[in-house]
Nucleic acid binder design. Sequence first.
DNA 1: GTAAGTTACGAGCGACGTAAAAATG
DNA 2: CATTTTTACGTCGCTCGTAACTTAC
Lengths: 279, 279
Amino acid sequence: MIELQQLVYFIAIAKCGTLSAAAEELNISQPSLSRSMKILENELGILLFDRTKNKIILNDAGKLALSYAKHVIDDVNTMEHAMQDYERSLHTLTIASVAPGPLWSLTPNMMKRFPKMNISTEINPKEDLKEKLTDNTYQLIVTIHPFDNDIVSVPYLEEQLFLTVPQGHPLCKYKDGIYMSELAGETILLYTEIGYWEERVIRKLTLTNFIRQTERSAFQELVRMSGLPSFVTNLSIKDEIMHTDSTNRICIPLLDDDAKIQFYCSTTMQNREYLNALL
Amino acid sequence: MIELQQLVYFIAIAKCGTLSAAAEELNISQPSLSRSMKILENELGILLFDRTKNKIILNDAGKLALSYAKHVIDDVNTMEHAMQDYERSLHTLTIASVAPGPLWSLTPNMMKRFPKMNISTEINPKEDLKEKLTDNTYQLIVTIHPFDNDIVSVPYLEEQLFLTVPQGHPLCKYKDGIYMSELAGETILLYTEIGYWEERVIRKLTLTNFIRQTERSAFQELVRMSGLPSFVTNLSIKDEIMHTDSTNRICIPLLDDDAKIQFYCSTTMQNREYLNALL
DNA sequence: GTAAGTTACGAGCGACGTAAAAATG
DNA sequence: CATTTTTACGTCGCTCGTAACTTAC
C-alpha cells in the first residue's frame, strides 16, 4: 500500500527540485528520501524519475503521479480539517438573537451552565434564524415568536423600551409615559447595534432626528455629555444605571404596543438540554 | 500523519459492523485493529466510535469521517490505476487503420521490430484517426492521405482490388480487367470487415447483390463452396492463394481509379521511431 | 458460556540516520 | 573539489500477534 508520507515526500521533491533540498525541508536524511521514492516507484509499478548518476528529475509518469498525489494529499488535509472543525463544533454553542438584550443575560447564563463550551453569540435580525438552527449553524436562537415542528421554544424575557432624558429636559413632563408619535422633531442619541429594534421602532420614527453611534463606549460618553435623550430598555438598564444616577437622568416608558417585545428562546430537539437551564 | 491503512481498516469496520468481523476480513488480529482505530482517533483528534464495554459503533463523527475516508481511498485507488494504465500504455503500441489490408503486414512487422511492446490493432474508417493519434489513443495510424503539422507520414502500401471468380464463370471473359459498372446485377460474396473499402467501393455498387459474411473462416468456406464471385486484393491474396489454387479461381483486376488505394502510415514526432522501421 | 473489546507483553520487520562510495561539472 | 545520489550497516521504533482480562447477552 502507498504511504501518505511517501506522497508528501514526493511532492516536496517535485517542489524543491533535488533530493537534498527536499530532505532538508522535510527534516529527514537524503538517503532515507532516496529509498522512500524507490519504494513508491515499486508500489506504483513505474519509475517516476529520470535518474542520471548525480541528478534526479521527474519524468512524464512522475508528472502524472504528481497531480494525483497532490489531489490525494489535499483530500486528506480536507478530511483532517473537517474532523477538527466538527470536533470544535461539539464544544461550541452558537447563540443568535434578533436583538442584543436577551444575550446580556443568556450568554453568562450559558457560560455558567456549560463551562466547557465555547459560547459564540451573534445578533441577527434577519428571517433565517430558524433555518440556521436546523442546519446547526446556530444551536440556540432568540426570536420574537415561538416555533414548533421539532423545535423547542420557551418564552425567555420581555424587553420594554424607555426614553431617558436629563433632569430638566422638556420631555420630562412625560415622565409617566410617552408615545412614539410625540417624539417627532426631537433629536435622540441612538446606539446602532440593536438588531430587530431598528426595524420594530426606529424606522417608524421618520420625524425624529437620530445621532447614530456604533461604538458602545463612545455612545455612553455622548449620552453623559450631550444632555440629549436616548433609549434604554429594562434589560439594558443595569448597564446604564450608573450613568443614570451620575447624570440624574430619568426613564420614561414608551407606551406604544411596539415598545415591548416578548422573546422566545428556541433550539432543536437534539439540543433541548440547552433550554433546561431556562425552565 | 494519518495512515491509509488506518482508513482501510476503518472502512472495513464500518462495513462489517464489529471489530472481530472486520479483523477476520482484513486478516489481522482484532487487538491490532482496536489499537489502530484508537491511533486514528488520536490523529484526527476526535472519537469516531461510541464504545460500550463489549460493543463499538460509529458515532456521528465516525459517520462523517467515513465519507471522507472513502473519498481518500477512492482517490488513492484512482491514482494507482492511472499509474498502472500509464505504465501499460508505455508498453502498448496501438495501431489504427482505415482498412485491414495494411495491418496484415504492418502488425507482424512491428511485433518483430518492437518485441517488448503489446501490439493492439483496430480498424477505424472514421474521420477521427488524426485526433486520436494526437491524444495518444493511437500511436500509429494508417490512412489514405498523409498529414503534416507535427505528424510524420510515410507512404506505406498500395492496395488494388480484384474480383475472383471460378473457372468457367461467365465473368471470366473479363479476365484482363473489369469495371465496377459491369458488376450490376451480379451476386457477390462479401467479407464485411473491410473498413474504408466499404465506403470507397461497395456502397457505390448499388446494382450489385451482396451476400455478407462477418466471420472470416465462414466467408472462406462460402467462397470455396458456392462458386460465387468475391473480392480480393493484392494484400489479401497471400491468404487466399491456397483457395485460389485449389478451386481454380481466377483474379480479375478492377480497372476503376477507386479500386486502388495508396495508404500512408503516420505517427507523432515523439513516436517517430515507429516509422523508422518502414523507411 | 459465548462473543466482543481492551490491555499487556514479546518478537520481528521496517524506516531512519550515519558513514562511505560513485559520479558529475 | 563541491554537490548530488546511491549503497551499506546498525539502531530504534512501530505494529503485529498471542495471551489474559473484562463485560454483556
